[in-house]
Nucleic acid binder design. Structure first.
Length: 352
DNA sequence: AACACGGGGTA
DNA sequence: TACCCAGTGTT
């Protein structure tokens, strides 16, 4: 890339960003902990979704030390509904890593940050540049798309070769004087102007130096490979009640929804397994109806049953998917980490 | 390199 | 419906 072009691009985009950036909560701080939290929450998640979670989480755990001393259950409860729950467990683990291994202070460069659990190449670049002002590049979905267009990259920018090109370009382009602003400007452009479909080139501060636009390719770049469709998975689950209490089980941490609580269930269509999961024989299992829940790679169809528990089951449980059980008052569900699927199942049975 | 991992907004 | 979002870790 020519130096004049890079200089022109930096100035155009930084000026545009200064004028047009959204006022987002995490743009009001340089606290590495707060920046880190925002970056983790924003992984594969939209800004509008994150805003309320970010505020609640920071209020509950204002410092990395507060987070390090929290229980995993409390962390997951605050993450409930946000998805990709492993992020929350890694964040918690990362906080303990900073407190223990790093002596309570965040490493101030990308290489050091990269050693923290849950911090990959993107987040390391983000925290290094935004919180510490280091000239570290970053590539997220926005940056990959923007650079693929600006430089007419026809490789699949999610494949190894295309990603390598994009990272190399991002590295050449980082503004040494304002790396955090530059990285955010690139992402903001991708979010607001250089959008996946129907990019608003007439509003783009860089449209005069966009190779894709010059070639008429702005609508067909970046080139993407199709994603696999979610595979269907049948499940059964039981909403077992005892008085006004409802039975929840905690999922093993290595599984999807790891560490989260839900009405116990199992893969398959046989409700016969539900008695063991509930801890007592379930004489009268009522079929309530099904709930469909789509993840990025799975389409879960859960047949929901209801039952009354004759007695309280033991908390210990030896099952494929669960390691703990508890009877919970519906008004106290908020203290547990429930996935959105778990909430749908409870709602289907008119609990909560 | 491919896959697992949530949930929701947009066209 | 299809796409994809301020990605990371595992296989």
């Amino acid at each position: 890339m020519g130096r004049p072009r890079a200089t022109r691009l930096r100035r155009a985009l930084l000026d545009w960003y200064a004028e047009n950036k959204r006022d987002l909560p995490w743009r009001r701080t340089h606290d590495p902990y707060a920046v880190w939290l925002s970056e983790v929450m924003l992984q594969q998640t939209r800004v509008d979704t994150v805003v309320p979670y970010y505020a609640r989480f920071l209020r509950a755990f204002p410092t990395v030390h507060a987070l390090a001393e929290a229980t995993e259950g409390d962390v997951l409860a605050l993450w409930s509904g946000l998805g990709y729950y492993r992020r929350a467990r890694l964040l918690h683990e990362g906080a303990r890593h900073v407190a223990r291994v790093c002596g309570g202070a965040f490493p101030a460069d990308a290489a050091g940050l990269r050693t923290i659990p849950g911090i990959g190449p993107y987040t390391a670049g983000a925290v290094a540049s935004i919180a510490f002002g280091k000239p570290a590049p970053l590539v997220d979905g926005n940056v990959a798309r923007v650079l693929a267009r600006l430089f007419a990259i026809e490789d699949d920018v999610r494949g190894a070769a295309g990603l390598a090109r994009v990272w190399a370009l991002a590295g050449e382009l980082v503004d040494e004087g304002a790396p955090g602003e530059w990285n955010q400007a690139l992402m903001e452009l991708g979010a607001m102007v250089c959008t996946p479909r129907a990019p608003r080139c007439s509003a783009c501060p860089a449209h005069t130096s966009c190779d894709a636009r010059a070639k008429g390719l702005q609508g067909s770049l970046p080139i993407l490979r199709a994603k696999a469709r979610p595979k269907a998975e049948a499940r059964v689950a039981v909403v077992a009640t005892r008085g006004d209490l409802v039975l929840l089980a905690r999922r093993k941490s290595s599984l999807r929804f790891g560490g989260m609580w839900e009405p116990p269930g199992a893969e398959g269509t046989d409700p016969g397994v539900l008695g063991d999961l509930a801890g007592v024989s379930l004489a009268r299992l009522r079929e309530i109806g099904s709930v469909v829940h789509v993840l990025s790679h799975r389409r879960l169809e859960v047949m929901v049953y209801a039952a009354h528990l004759a007695r309280a089951p033991r908390p210990a449980i030896d099952a494929a998917e669960y390691d703990l059980r508890a009877l919970v008052r519906p008004s106290e569900l908020g203290a547990h980490g429930l996935s959105t699927l778990a909430r749908k199942i409870l709602a289907r049975a008119n609990v909560a």
